[in-house]
Design a protein around this nucleic acid. Structure first.
Length: 298
DNA sequence: CGTTACCTGAAA
DNA sequence: TTTCAGGTAACG
């Protein structure tokens, strides 16, 4: 009756954040913020900044647009500044009529001038709100998005080349590529037939090309399926998310690979639970020969 | 480069 | 009761 049980496995990555952005953008564009309330116990949200400061900066501002970069939601304000919200692990942002009952784990509310609220809930309080003088302040530290139409295969390869870190760790690093999280990374590596612990620079040119296309495909499919989370509030039709229909390996440990039947394996790569098919995802054969042992500096 | 802390609830 | 989950910043 109170909707779905809170499920902290639905961690927002690029497709989930983009789904939220698309849903909220037409609802908030042109609206003026009339109030901001934050639960004082939700410390990481403001990184210690006083709520009064945030309120002074937001109340009275009109929202020009709602954008997204990586996993950040970017509210463009009418004074040229940008309000950046990051959902981290368990954050949710939903649009509700004023007076609607609180969301589970509701931590903050942004009141709009049309009688609606943006309700921020966050079970684990990892989410963040920051005010920036420009969008560049947010985006400067982020790598390109795999779904960016301007990202060429050669540019994608250049990020991986020469790196000794596991390719999964490189893909998860938002400074290298923005938007992938643990779920979509495992799915992309599976789709590309690449084992997650392969040192990024050891991938063949062909494998990098497959990974380039796989990253785009899994993210685009995630968006097309409206992500895995937040569906119960964003979809007026009541349609559910479809992520379970395309997840091939994530959290399928021990279950048969849909292609070859081999049980999906689980390991830890880059400090994260990692799922892969030991048969379909083969270790890269390193193209080393002459000069073997020579190390790249940096 | 890898590891840990942050925080809370579910699962083991 | 302990472990685990995962995005990111801080730290070694």
């Amino acid at each position: 009756m109170a909707g779905r049980r809170f499920d902290n496995r639905d961690v927002p990555e690029l497709p989930e954040v983009e789904t939220i952005r698309r849903d909220l953008a037409p609802l908030v564009a042109g609206r003026t913020i009339t109030g901001v309330e934050v639960d004082p116990g939700t410390l990481p949200l403001l990184a210690g900044a006083p709520i009064e400061t945030l309120r002074a900066n937001l109340v009275g501002r009109t929202i020009r647009s709602l954008g997204r970069r990586g996993k950040y939601l970017l509210f463009e304000l009418d004074d040229g500044r940008w309000f950046a919200a990051h959902l981290r692990m368990t954050g949710r942002l939903v649009w509700r009529e004023r007076g609607a009952p609180p969301e589970p784990y509701e931590r903050a509310v942004i009141q709009l001038d049309d009688g609606h609220d943006l309700r921020w809930s966050d079970l684990r309080k990892f989410g963040t709100w920051r005010l920036h003088a420009s969008a560049e302040e947010v985006t400067a530290k982020l790598g390109p998005e795999p779904i960016d139409a301007g990202l060429t295969e050669a540019q994608f390869r250049r990020v991986l080349e020469g790196r000794r870190a596991p390719v999964k760790a490189v893909l998860l690093d938002q400074r290298r590529f923005a938007g992938l999280g643990n779920i979509y990374v495992d799915e992309a590596l599976y789709a590309a037939g690449v084992r997650p612990d392969t040192p990024a620079g050891d991938l063949s040119r062909a494998a990098m090309g497959r990974l380039y296309r796989a990253c785009r495909e899994v993210l685009e499919r995630g968006i097309a399926h409206r992500g895995a989370s937040f569906r119960d509030y964003v979809d007026g039709q009541g349609n559910e998310g479809q992520q379970h229909m395309f997840v091939q390996v994530f959290r399928r440990t021990g279950k048969p690979c849909y292609v070859c039947g081999t049980p999906i394996a689980r390991s830890i790569v880059g400090g994260r639970a990692t799922h892969y098919c030991p048969r379909c995802q083969r270790p890269a054969r390193r193209p080393r020969r002459a000069g073997e042992g020579a190390r790249r500096a940096g």
